Structure formats: C-alpha cells, structure tokens
Amino acid sequence: MTRIASISVDLDSLPHYCRIHGLPESLLDARARSLVHQVAVPRFRELWDALGVPGTFFAIGEDLESDPVAAAGMRAAHEAGIEVASHSHAHDYALTRRAPDAILADLRRADDVILQATGTRPVGFRAPGYTLNADLYAATQTLGYQYGSSAFPAAPYYAAKAAVMGALALVGRPSRSVLDTPRVLLAPRVPYRPDPANPYRRGTGSVLELPMAVTPALRFPFIGTFATTLPLRSLRGAWRACRRDAFFNFELHGVDVLDATDGIPGELVRQQRDLRVGAGRKLERLREIFGWLRSECDVVTLRDAAGRLSASV
C-alpha cells in the first residue's frame, strides 16, 4: 500500500501570537497584521509549486473578512488546486469552553466566509490551539465536515506549553492560550473515528480525525516549529521512526517561513524564538523535508487523504 502524506499550514496571523505571549496587539502595524497572508502564503505556494505537491491552508474566517488580500489569496489558492479548510472564525483559544450554540455559530460563520472567498464550502476543520472536546466535535458533525485534524498527542509539546503558560502567569503577562486536557496525550496517533463523547478516544463518530504527526513511543512532534529549528539529524531520526505509518500529517504555521526582517516587532521576535531563524534557512529546510515526503509518499491534500482513508478506518 502506498503511503500517504499531507502538508497543511495554519494561517494564524501575528495578533494571535501576541495573545499567546501576553503581548499587546498594538505592537503590530497594518502590514505586520497581514504578513502571514501577504508574505507567508506566497512563499508556501512557491515551495509547493516548485516541488509539484499540493497543500492545505487552514484559514481563519475573521482574517478573510477583514483583509481583502487574505480573501483574494485564498481564492487564488483554491483555484490553483490548494485546499482551503476551516481554522474557525475567531480563532478563540477558549472555543471549547463556550456554549454549544456559540461554538456552532463560530464554525458556521467561518464556513460562510470561506465559501464567499473561494466559492467552495470547507470540508475540513482544525481547532484553535489543537483543543478538542465533545461540544466542538458535535459541531463538526452537525456541519457535515469530512474530517478534522486537531488531535496532537505530543507529550513534549504539552509539557513545554504548560511551562511557558506558567512562566507568563508568574511575570504578570498571562497567555490567552488554553491548556488542553491531559487525555489528549492518550489519543491515537494514527487516523481514527472518535467517540463523540470523548473525541480523544476511538469510537464511531462521522467526522474522521487525522492527528498531526508524532513519533511512536516518545510521541515527539513533527511539526513546522521543530522542523525549521532542530538539527537535521534529529529530524531524520523522527522521520525514520514514522516510516511504518500509512499516513504522515505534517502541520506548519505561516510564521514557519517568516523572520524578523519581514517586519515583525522585536518584542514578538524575542518571545517567538523560531522567528530568529532566517526565512531563507527555513525555506531550504522545508524544501528538503517536502522532498522526503514526495520521494516516499503520495502527497495529497488532507481532503483527499480523508477520502482515501475513510473506508478503512
């Protein structure tokens, strides 16, 4: 059986990083607020075009509403064969703590905005901050999504996030991010159908879950932040550890191809360490990793991966 791989990019704009790090959004001028769509999206498209592989963008509805450049970019991406999926409307890190009707309204509004921008309603969803619960999963079922890609059962990531949030609270600059339930660490690391009452457990839910890549045993995360900053030897080891998996879900963010010279305020660069790595170096690293995927896997959008995997999961 041919292995399948997907490359997806969460288009979190810089205001969301200010919220993560407890920084005022007033640090950002208009250009900085739009950097992900104005600069990162074209860079990812150039990478994919050069290697001849498709990709999936997870767009935030309110960004497409407020920024004509963002909406036009997603329309052009869709027309070029790139999947545009939903990353919610407001990218509210506390979305799972909202009432069920508020959750459903947020997702429905994101769907409407993406439909208006691209002409196609999204069939995939990724939760803000990777945080999933029964009410959010129920909303994805109500809206008829084909797949979700929110489960991130990565122990090192979970521990690091808890440490950072704790440190920010101690210095009086609390993060607006949310720490997920520890149950996520026991979630399957391969595609599965969730239990609607506990989406981090196998069940019979209608929306297929495509977890992001983590290695067996240690569950080390193979995502853009680490792929662009860790030694290449470590990444090769993680890639080899995942070779038995039928599906490899490589998740990145727009900032994974940006650096300080793109016009990001120094206060944010100091907090977001990967922004200190040059964009050219990051792009070269990603070009190599995408090449690994292309040489050993059939690289498809997450929509197409879900279609292929649905009957067998």
Score class of each variant (00 low, 15 high):
T131Y: 07
T142P: 04
L104R: 03
Q141R: 14
A110G: 06
G166H: 02
D135H: 12
R98F: 01
R189P: 03
P153H: 05
A139W: 00
L185F: 02
A127R: 02
P194L: 10
G119R: 04
A117P: 04
P211F: 10
V123W: 01
A154N: 01
Q146E: 15
D180R: 01
Y158M: 08
G148Q: 05
T140C: 11
A187Y: 03
E79G: 14
D106V: 03
Y192W: 09
L115F: 07
P182A: 02
I114P: 00
R173M: 15
H87Y: 02
R98N: 06
P156Q: 10
Y157L: 10
S175D: 07
D92L: 10
R173F: 05
H89R: 02
F152E: 00
G81E: 14
V178K: 03
L136S: 03
L107E: 12
L136G: 05
Y130H: 06
L132N: 01
R173E: 15
A94I: 08
F125E: 13
R121E: 01
L179T: 10
A187I: 07
S175K: 06
V113S: 05
L107M: 14
R121Q: 06
Y157G: 01
A90Q: 10
A187L: 08
A163D: 12
A217L: 13
L136E: 03
A162P: 04
D180N: 07
V184R: 02
P182C: 06
A77I: 12
A197F: 04
A72H: 09
L132W: 02
E83D: 14
P100N: 09
D101P: 00
P196E: 13
A85S: 13
H91W: 06
A105D: 09
A77E: 11
S86G: 04
L179F: 02
D101F: 00
P196Q: 11
H91Q: 07
A151G: 05
Y130I: 03
A102Y: 01
A187N: 05
M212A: 12
Q146K: 14
R183N: 12
P156K: 08
M212G: 09
S150E: 06
A105H: 02
T181A: 13
M74S: 04
I114A: 00
A80S: 15
L143C: 11
P199G: 06
A94F: 11
D92I: 05
G172Q: 10
F125L: 10
T142Q: 14
T131G: 04
E83L: 12
A99K: 09
V164T: 13
A85N: 04
A99G: 06
G73T: 09
Q141L: 11
A169G: 15
P196F: 09
D106L: 00
A72C: 09
R176Y: 14
A77N: 08
P194H: 07
T120V: 06
L170I: 14
P128G: 04
T215C: 07
A169C: 10
N198S: 13
L179C: 07
Y192N: 03
M165A: 13
P216E: 12
Y93D: 08
A85Y: 00
